[in-house]
Amino acid sequence: MILALTIAILVTGSVYLIQQRGMVRIVFGMSLLGHAGNLTLLASGVGAWRGEPFPDRTPLDVAADPLPQAFVLTAIVIAMATTTILLTLAALGRDDDTDVPEPADDNIAADPVATLGRAAGNGGK
């Protein structure tokens, strides 16, 4: 139950943060969601058994389920990669404000970020 409460707090925080303004804050929210997911995975291994899964030093009747731990390791590392990418996206551009107004009608070629028209006039070099 305590674990469920922890997960619930993480999910609440995460959902609140991802509705805020500013990429960095949303990234923190996703980070919390990742934590919640990891704890859920560990909880699925039934937290009544908490011995470290080393058969040579932990008796079998208290050893924890090793499979969710492997899952969580994979998930943590993938989340690290994704968080780094998200932070890069937050650092690029004008700023990290996510409440972007959509321009009414825009001349696409007049933006330094637009890459269209690369192949124009040269037969697609």
């Binding site: 139950m1 674990l3 469920a4 409460l5 997960i7 619930a8 707090i9 993480l10 999910v11 609440t12 925080g13 995460s14 959902v15 609140y16 509705q19 919640a36 859920t40 909880a43």
Partner: peptide, 15 residues
Amino acid sequence: IIALLAGAVAFTGVH
């Protein structure tokens, strides 16, 4: 409100 609802769902789900 949505965050609290989501947290409640998470709690009951895990529990």
